[in-house]
């Protein structure tokens, strides 16, 4: 009997992020980190996942109306997909550059908004895909390899 595709996924869970609510910024990443830690993943895998998730979460809270984080654990990889409903990114190449930022004062007061977010996300991911549609939102897909 053929094995259905979904059998390869060992764990999947979604988390919701409320845009603009800085009080809870980071709470999803803290949860995801503790889930991965409880599953006994190596420290560097947990840390990479937590960092890419946290920077993405800060972005959703800072710029979007709302977002969802889909955590998928496969046998060889952890995938973190972040989809938001927001303004979208007009120029992705520009947004990926270190130091480029459109952040307001509130975001900067939190210690973010210096144009390092997407750059950090990309550099901590083993694979990174970004797509965005103006007026609709942005989707990030980060893959972290689980080294055996």
């Amino acid at each position: 009997m053929p094995v259905p595709e979904t059998d390869h996924i060992s764990y999947q869970r979604s988390f919701y992020i409320e845009g603009g609510n800085f009080n809870y910024a980071g709470i999803v990443s803290t949860s995801i980190k503790s889930i991965l830690k409880q599953m006994d993943f190596p420290g560097d895998v947990v840390r990479k996942c937590a960092i890419v998730c946290y920077e993405s979460e800060i972005n959703v809270v800072s710029y979007a109306r709302k977002g969802v984080v889909n955590l998928t654990i496969n046998p060889d990889t952890v995938q973190i997909e972040v989809i938001d409903e927001g303004p979208g990114i007009p120029n992705i190449d520009q947004a990926m550059q270190q130091g480029y930022s459109t952040a307001n004062q509130k975001i900067r007061e939190m210690g973010f908004g210096a144009g390092m977010g997407l750059y950090n996300i990309k550099s901590y991911s083993d694979a990174f895909i970004i797509s965005s549609e103006l007026g609709k939102g942005t989707r990030l897909l980060m893959t972290i390899n689980i080294k055996k």
Binding site: I51, Y54, E109, M110, G111, F112, A114, M116, G117, N120
Partner: peptide, 28 residues
């Protein structure tokens, strides 16, 4: 004081010296 730089460069087990005092410091 820039949390994105902390995320980019700080290592596990280090102490963090900062003048920022909000929740994001704790989360980071």
């Amino acid at each position: 004081d820039l949390m994105s730089d902390v995320l980019a460069f700080a290592k596990a087990g280090s102490i963090l010296l900062t003048g920022l005092t909000n929740d994001q410091v704790i989360r980071t």
